[in-house]
Structure formats: C-alpha cells, structure tokens
Design a protein around this nucleic acid. Sequence first.
DNA 1: CGTCTTATTGAGCATATGCTCAATAACGAG
DNA 2: CTCGTTATTGAGCATATGCTCAATAAGACG
Lengths: 236, 236
Amino acid sequence: MKTSPKSKSAKRPAQPLLATKLTAAKRLTPTLRAERILQGSIRFFAEHGFSGQTRELAHELGISKGLLYRYFPSKEALIERVYQEVFLRRWSPTWQAELTDRNRPLIERLKTFYADYAKLPLEYEWGRIYLFAGLAGASINRRYVRLANERIFKPVIGELRHEFGFRPTEKLAITEPELELMWSLHGSIFYIGMRKWVYHVKAPSDVDGAIEQLVEGFYINAKNVMRATLSHGGKT
Amino acid sequence: MKTSPKSKSAKRPAQPLLATKLTAAKRLTPTLRAERILQGSIRFFAEHGFSGQTRELAHELGISKGLLYRYFPSKEALIERVYQEVFLRRWSPTWQAELTDRNRPLIERLKTFYADYAKLPLEYEWGRIYLFAGLAGASINRRYVRLANERIFKPVIGELRHEFGFRPTEKLAITEPELELMWSLHGSIFYIGMRKWVYHVKAPSDVDGAIEQLVEGFYINAKNVMRATLSHGGKT
DNA sequence: CGTCTTATTGAGCATATGCTCAATAACGAG
DNA sequence: CTCGTTATTGAGCATATGCTCAATAAGACG
C-alpha cells in the first residue's frame, strides 16, 4: 500500500496553503526551537487533547515530525513537559505572603488574591489541559491539588479562623466543612472557565465582578459555617 | 474504496477450527443485545473517553467487533446514542413541580431538590462523559445547559425573588449576578464529582451534608445579592 | 433429527499514527 | 567561496483502528 507514488505526488504538488515554508525560520538554536515546540504543544494539546497527532502538531509548528523527536524523545515526554510548564511554572511566589499579610483587611486580601489567582484556571490552556490530564488519569492533578491545599486552602482557613476569633489550625485541626468551603469557591471559579472553554456557553460579561461576588459570598459563608461547626470550645 | 478486487478472492483460507470461542456469546434478541451494547458503551466511554477503541469495547462486551456494527452503523452513531441515554433520559419530570410548590418552605424545597438532582453530575458516567463531550466540542453540553437554564435556573430565581419580596422574573428580567449565583452553586456541586471521578482526590465523606451546606450558603448569598442588585424599585 | 432464519464471528482492508534514519541544506569558521 | 557541523526533512516501518463481509452456528419449528 506504500507503493503508490502517483497518488502521492498528485496530492502534494507544491505548497498550496499558507505557511508551509513561509515560517521557514529554519535552523534555530536548540534552546529556542525546544521552547517553540513546547509553547506550540501547549496550545495544540489544549485544543485537541493528548490524543492529537504528532503529525498535525508538527504541521502547526511549521516543522517536520522528525524534528519533534529530536527535542523530545517521545510524545509522552513532551506531554510531561507540558504539564510542568503549565501547572508548576505559573505559581506566583508572592501569593502566600499577600494572603497572610495582616496589615490589610482579610476580605480585601482575599479579593485581590483571587482576582489574580483566578487567571490561572480561567485560562484556556490551563483549564483544558488540566481536564484532559485528569480524565487521562495523570498524576499531575493530585500534585496540583496538594499544592493548592498547602499554599491556599490551609493559609486561607487559618486567616479566616483568626478573623472570626477561632483557634488556629495548629491547635484545632481543619474540619471537613471548612475544606468544603474552599473547594466550593474553587469549584465555582473553575466552572466559569469550563463554561467558556468547555461548554462554549455564555460566561459572565464581567469576570472580575463575578469573582468578587464569589469571594464575598465565600467570606460570609465561611463565617456562618465556622460559627456553626467550631463554636464548642473553638473560640479563643 | 470498493474498487480493489485484486487478490481478494484468492486469500480466503477460512479457519473454521475455532474452539477459541470460549466466551460463546449467546444469541440474544436484537432489542436486548442493543441495550447491552448501549449500557456497556456508556461505561466504556466514561472510562476511556471517546477515543477508546471499538475493538476493546467489543472485547469488554464479550462480543465481536462485527456485531457492534450490526446494531450501530458507526462509532459516531453509538456515541450519539450514549449522549441521549445519559443526559436526556435521566431528567426527572417531577423536579419542576417540586421546586415551585409554595406549600413548602423554599429552603426546604431547594435542599430536597438538590439532594436528588446532584446525583446526576455526581455520577461517574454522567460526569466524565459530560466532560469528554464538552472537550470534544459536542453540542450536547449546550443543549443540556439550556435545559438546566429553563427548568432549574429560571424557576429557582423566580422562587427566590418571591421569597425575598422582589418582582417576578416576568416583570424584571433575570440579572447576571443572579445567574452567576446559580452557576456558582452548580459549579460547586459538579466540582465534587470532578474531585472524585477526575482528579481522584479526597471527596467529602458526607456528600449529602456537603450539598446541604452548599444550598444553605447559596440561599443566604442569594438574599444578599438580590438585595444589593435589585433593590432600586425592585421591591414589590 | 433436519431445515431455515439470522445472530454472531473474525480475517481482512484502508487508513491513521508514533517513531526512525539516511539524506539534505542552512549557518559559521577559515 | 569552501568546508564542516548539525538543524531539518520526509519516506518508510510497525502497529493501531474504524469498518466490511463471507462464513458459521445457535436457536425455532416441524
């Protein structure tokens, strides 16, 4: 079936479409080429999922499939790099300090933090790749959840405890209702992204405003839930 | 495609010595067989996504791949049937009446409704297939969102308006903050399922309790948001 | 048991897909 | 310009995958 040179040449006579060789910015330095492949792969896999073909990816990158394999030993390895790049490289190191800076009112800290943090899950690439990875059973999601738990959930619950006059998390372990509060907020935020990038239905016209409304509701709910579940001896 | 009668007839050795049929699939009636294939496909596609192979599906069903194509003309058609079965056949016709039955307190109605409704998106098959479909760009999600909007979002907002003394939705159009409230609740619920079936991280030990906490928070937030955004002339 | 209907099978086809490798050509050094 | 290094290419391989069809055999009925 390979012996069909006639149909082959008939199909590919020349460059009928755009960018076949126009973007022939050929012969880049390995570092730069690898970087381009990585960034292109992020976009590509976000769009097509990890079952997208390497042929098509190479075509979109304007390079040959062979070149792909010079920089990444396998499709699997490429995907692993995509995970690293998308999820672990975009974590702002200042968030934690901002969240726990008691010179500012907590509600204000929460609003500014989530206004910034929400950009991650609301980003096209981030959200879709996160879902594809999870559905494929990749471990990256669990790793990310652990990160969020340590650097967001725990600190925020700690600050809320302090705000509402309950014992700190070191003295009174974090409860399930408190954790559910956090999950609920993050779920609502992520769902805004899902509406946009997965369901393709109308998202809020004012995303920042929607996030702020979510944070305000969260703050009030937190107060109520903590009072209802931590009150017995929980008060300082 | 059929124009290849070259050495076709030559190679037909026919191996009738097949004792390999250990799992002898027994001759079911077409209706029953189709039903089994459909149910098996739901489980299979929920697990592997729609890029799962028909060969493997047939194997899991204990039948040959050929039989699959006797009952469903193509993989695509099968998937379409899966959508129908999962999303449109499981909608309870009594929900709407329950939600608007003003003989019962609204908060109670909401709790019982969501305790029941949440079973859908929290189900393994439902949640994962919904995500796979959305990521693949299927239109079923938009269809489902429209359904939820008409039969849940609008009625609930209407009841909340009545509960808190604002003008009905026929007189004062539903606002974006109100819709966001609904989305937020549904997002939080769906996210519980995602934790279980997609991220494989710890889900609440008491799901029903978590749902109830969500509904309570939702009710309070709704009151606050409506008061903040509908007050000017909105009051009855 | 024999016969007929049809549910069921699996080899096979055409194409898709991850990956290899010998050949090619772009850039820099001399 | 010449030459050497190496980024880049694309035909090609091995296997995967949706789907077809002639052959098979499991029941129903006499």
